[in-house]
Simulated scan of single mutants.
Amino acid sequence: MTFFSLLLNILWIVFGGLWMAAGWLIASVLMAITIIGIPWARAAFNIAFYTLLPFGQTVVSRDAYFGREDIGTGPLGMLGNIIWFVLAGWWLALAHVITAIGLAITIIGIPFAWAHLKLAGLALWPIGKMIVLKE
């Protein structure tokens, strides 16, 4: 992680990253409790870590990264995303949007607001995505 990414991540934690990562962790725990939600729990846990330290990482589609479809990028992945949207995706996305609106009021918060909006999109449709380091 570069110094600039580290600095942005520290500021990010202060400006809403910590509480949104906690929201993702809560979603992960709730999914794990249901047993059948374990695949979504694992994805939510990975995204919680990404939400805590987003700078220096990026989200890419798994089929674009590996060059082939898998179970999460095909029709079953779409079904999984629909189930995720109903159970947890909409409220996580709403929390990211509300945080983004609060941050966009200040000039220094605009880049962080934009990051929250990108995370809101990920919250709506996370299955079939993976988090990789920016290089």
Rank of each mutant, 00 (worst) to 15 (best):
M1C: 09
T2H: 07
F3M: 08
F3E: 13
F3D: 13
L6H: 07
L7Y: 12
L7D: 06
L11C: 14
W12E: 02
I13A: 10
V14E: 02
F15V: 12
F15A: 08
F15G: 00
F15N: 02
F15D: 01
G16S: 10
L18T: 11
W19N: 08
W19R: 15
A21K: 08
A21V: 11
A21N: 08
A22P: 01
G23K: 04
G23E: 02
G23D: 03
G23A: 05
L25C: 07
A27F: 06
S28V: 01
V29C: 04
L30Y: 03
L30R: 15
M31L: 14
M31S: 15
I33S: 01
I33P: 02
T34W: 04
T34P: 04
I36M: 15
I36C: 15
G37C: 06
G37E: 05
W40L: 12
W40V: 00
A43F: 04
A43C: 15
A44C: 11
A44G: 04
A44P: 03
F45G: 11
F45T: 09
I47N: 07
I47T: 06
I47M: 15
A48H: 04
A48K: 05
A48C: 07
T51R: 09
T51K: 05
P54R: 02
P54I: 03
P54L: 01
P54S: 03
P54C: 06
G56A: 09
G56W: 09
G56I: 09
Q57E: 08
Q57H: 13
Q57G: 06
T58C: 12
T58R: 14
V59Y: 08
V60C: 10
S61N: 08
R62F: 07
R62L: 14
A64P: 00
Y65M: 09
F66V: 14
F66G: 10
F66I: 13
R68D: 05
R68A: 15
R68S: 15
R68C: 07
E69A: 14
D70H: 04
D70M: 04
I71R: 13
I71G: 12
I71V: 14
T73A: 09
T73P: 11
G74L: 13
L76N: 13
G77E: 07
L79E: 08
L79R: 10
L79C: 12
N81H: 03
N81C: 14
I82S: 01
I82N: 00
I83V: 15
W84I: 08
W84D: 08
V86K: 11
L87V: 12
L87F: 13
W90L: 14
W91I: 08
H96I: 04
I98M: 11
I98V: 13
T99N: 06
A100R: 07
I101Q: 01
G102T: 12
G102K: 13
A104H: 06
I105H: 00
T106D: 01
I107L: 15
G109W: 09
G109S: 13
I110Q: 11
I110M: 12
I110L: 15
P111I: 13
F112D: 00
A113V: 00
H116C: 07
L117I: 09
L117C: 10
A120H: 03
G121N: 10
G121F: 02
L122Y: 01
L122K: 01
A123Y: 02
A123Q: 05
L124D: 07
P126M: 01
G128Y: 00
G128H: 05
G128I: 06
G128L: 05
M130R: 15
M130H: 06
M130C: 15
I131E: 06
I131W: 10
